[in-house]
């Protein structure tokens, strides 16, 4: 019964995502808003891969998000004017960064792990802030744009066509979601769940826990850097705030808000976060109050996240 319901959810999510450009205009949105939701959903889902399915809180995924964004921007600006080259370079930079940092922090747990991940994010933030020659410092990296795609005879003008760009981002989202779903169904993913549920028992069963957490961290960071790449493409711009701790905090909030034990929860959290922020900030200068109030009320009334709450409603 439960399996069937998960299936239904997945079909509904994909039906909505694939048709987004056709209906979003009718409910007062615009295509770029939908693109933002999908981009940030990739980041929130990557954080949730670690948080919800491995039980490890990274409060510094902005580090890899930012590395992806700067990697892509710098590649297009200085090395090769191609969106695919930027994407590969950005994801590679973020993943390699996470491999090295992961080695240093994999023994830490809980609050200490969260804090050290923040620390590395902040180090990148201040480096990008101060290294003005390369990154443009506080003004951000400008003077580049995403490039139209051309794969053999097929070409897609993602630069000027917002809808085409949305589908490009959605393809990246699909690849990330499929990758994560497959990994979670594999023996590796099941082992991660075992570590989440009871790390000590997993260790006694002979599972190399640190190694698994390292791999989960690197995989999750790779998807976060993919999100960073498409975020940079979305804005045709990167600035140091992509690295800052409140950016990481936003990802965690999206995951918790949507429901961190569920696969699609972070997507819903990202949608709520982005749409609320966009709508409220266009209505009033004091948009932070209703958004903050929403977080507070969510903790009081939806303790399992929005999706977790809906699931429980349905069960009773």
């Amino acid at each position: 019964m439960k399996k069937f319901q998960d299936w239904q959810g997945t079909i509904i999510v994909w039906a909505l995502l694939l048709t987004m450009p056709f209906w979003i205009g009718h409910i007062g949105g615009y295509t770029t808003l939908g693109t933002r939701v999908v981009v940030l959903a990739v980041a929130a889902m990557s954080v949730n891969f670690l948080l919800g399915f491995t039980g490890v809180l990274s409060f510094g995924h902005a580090a890899y998000f930012g590395l992806g964004a700067y990697g892509a921007g710098l590649t297009i600006k200085y090395l090769a004017a191609s969106s695919m080259a930027g994407l590969v370079a950005g994801v590679l930079l973020g993943t390699v960064g996470a491999m090295l940092i992961g080695l240093m922090i994999v023994r830490l747990r809980g609050v200490y792990f969260a804090m050290v991940t923040i620390a590395f994010g902040q180090i990148f933030y201040f480096v990008s802030f101060r290294w003005v020659n390369l990154t443009g410092g506080d003004d951000g990296l400008t003077g580049w744009t995403r490039m139209p795609l051309s794969l053999g005879p097929l070409s897609l003008d993602i630069l000027h066509d917002e809808t085409a760009f949305y589908y490009f981002v959605l393809a990246c989202f699909g690849a990330a979601a499929a990758g994560m779903a497959l990994l979670l169904r594999s023996p590796f993913g099941r082992t991660l769940l075992a570590i989440r549920e009871n790390e000590r028992r997993a260790r006694f069963l002979g599972i190399p826990v640190d190694q698994h957490i390292w791999m989960s961290f690197v995989i999750s960071a790779a998807f976060a850097s993919l999100a960073g790449v498409v975020y940079a493409y979305l804005n045709n711009f990167v600035d140091p705030r992509a690295f800052r701790w409140d950016q990481s905090g936003d990802f965690v909030i999206m995951a918790v808000l949507g429901g961190m034990r569920s696969f699609w929860g972070p997507l819903i959290g990202a949608a709520i976060f982005v749409v609320l922020q966009d709508k409220l900030s266009s209505l009033t200068d004091y948009w932070m109050t209703p958004l903050g109030l929403f977080f507070v009320l969510a903790v009081v009334f939806f303790p399992r996240g929005v999706l977790g709450m809906l699931k429980r409603r349905r069960a009773t």
């Binding site: 948080l51 809180l57 609050v111 905090g249 965690v252 909030i253 918790v256 808000l257 961190m260 932070m288 109050t289 958004l291 903050g292 109030l293 929403f294 977080f295 507070v296 969510a298 903790v299 303790p303």
Partner: peptide, 15 residues
């Protein structure tokens, strides 16, 4: 879970 304190106090900070 301390995660909820993150969500709530972030919200309070905004307010």
């Amino acid at each position: 879970d301390p995660l909820y304190s993150l969500l709530m106090t972030f919200g309070l900070a905004f307010i």
